[in-house]
């Protein structure tokens, strides 16, 4: 496993958003949306970030692409540090990294036809002449399961699933190496969702893509990912290969999260022990001392309030930040 090539390395990434207030709009504090997380993404794998809303998973995705300028930390893409690069030269790098959003309704320009939407990235990056771009567009549209007759239509003429296909085509037409999918299938109905997931898998193989898949849906993540990182309140709580994480979760938060997924199998339902967590996710501008999860954790003890747990490799390739595994 370790021989596989690392495409993206995230080291101690931090993104703090200032809270401004008072008459002078001084900074009064920070929301630590992403607080010191590290992980690496290997070539051709699907790496997933899961967590509840507000845990910082989307901010992480955006900070990697510098859509939110990171507060601190390094992001290495094929060995090159993205944080040091000037903004203008970063634009060239960005064609290798694409982002697909949850809501295809708001991410596609309603005044552009599908053809224009797909040609735009090629022309912006000066990768093709208009004629070549048109040829590539025709090819791409068929790859994502639409037909050439769709090219002259506008986004509002398509259903949610088809629009997401257009977003995918638009992202992949630049032949990127890394695609960040931010809740890309969350807005879709079950029957459409599985069509898109199949398409994503098929395209990954065909174009040798590396995915960072950001989602709150643990079932989808289980299906798609090779490795999964679980985030809570801006920190990485656990990171492991998918099977290890789902069969043998170490962190109490991961355990609770997995037990909370409504079961879809009547037999499984009877045997399942549910851990119902108390309370809500704390306010990220005022997180608890020590472990961010301790207020809701059934296993919390004194040490959890005093020290922030170290992020350690508890088992091979299985990282966790919890005092229970760090005696």
């Amino acid at each position: 496993m370790s021989e596989e090539q690392v495409v993206l390395e995230v080291k101690h990434l931090k993104k703090y958003f200032p809270i401004k207030g008072g008459i002078l709009k001084r900074t009064q504090g920070h929301v630590k949306a992403v607080d010191d997380i590290s992980f690496d993404v290997r070539e051709n794998e699907t790496f997933s970030l899961v967590g509840e809303s507000g845990c910082g998973k989307s901010t992480t995705g955006r900070a990697i692409l510098r859509l939110h300028e990171p507060t601190d930390g390094d992001v290495l893409f094929n060995g090159e540090n993205l944080i040091d690069v000037s903004k203008s030269s970063f634009r060239h790098l960005r064609k290798d990294m694409q982002l697909i959003f949850q809501d295809p309704y708001s991410s596609l320009n309603p005044r552009m036809t599908v053809k224009k939407l797909l040609m735009e990235p090629l022309l912006t990056h000066k990768l093709a002449t208009p004629k070549e771009a048109e040829e590539k567009t025709v090819e791409m549209v068929e790859k994502v399961g639409l037909s050439t007759e769709h090219l002259d239509r506008y986004p509002h003429e398509f259903s949610g699933g088809q629009r997401q296909r257009i977003s995918i085509a638009r992202a992949l037409i630049l032949r990127p190496k890394l695609v960040i999918l931010d809740e890309a299938v969350s807005a879709l109905d079950v029957s459409i969702q599985s069509q898109i997931l199949n398409l994503l898998k098929q395209l990954q193989e065909e174009f040798q893509l590396t995915y960072i898949f950001i989602s709150h849906d643990l079932n989808v993540v289980k299906h798609l990912s090779d490795r999964v990182g679980v985030m809570y309140l801006g920190q990485m709580m656990e990171l492991a290969e998918t099977e290890a994480l789902y069969d043998n979760p170490l962190h109490p938060y991961t355990k609770a999260l997995l037990s909370a997924i409504p079961s879809i199998n009547p037999k499984e339902k009877e045997n399942k022990e549910r851990i119902i967590l108390q309370g809500d996710v704390p306010d990220p501008s005022d997180p608890p001392s020590g472990c961010p999860f301790r207020l809701r954790c059934p296993m919390a003890h004194d040490r959890c309030a005093e020290e922030i747990p170290r992020y350690i490799e508890a088992e091979r390739d299985h990282w966790v930040a919890c005092h229970l595994y760090d005696e």
Partner: peptide
Amino acid sequence: SIQSLGERSNELYSIP
């Protein structure tokens, strides 16, 4: 389609 999600199978069942 939802049960094949849990199975980590290669291709998901989907309604066309």
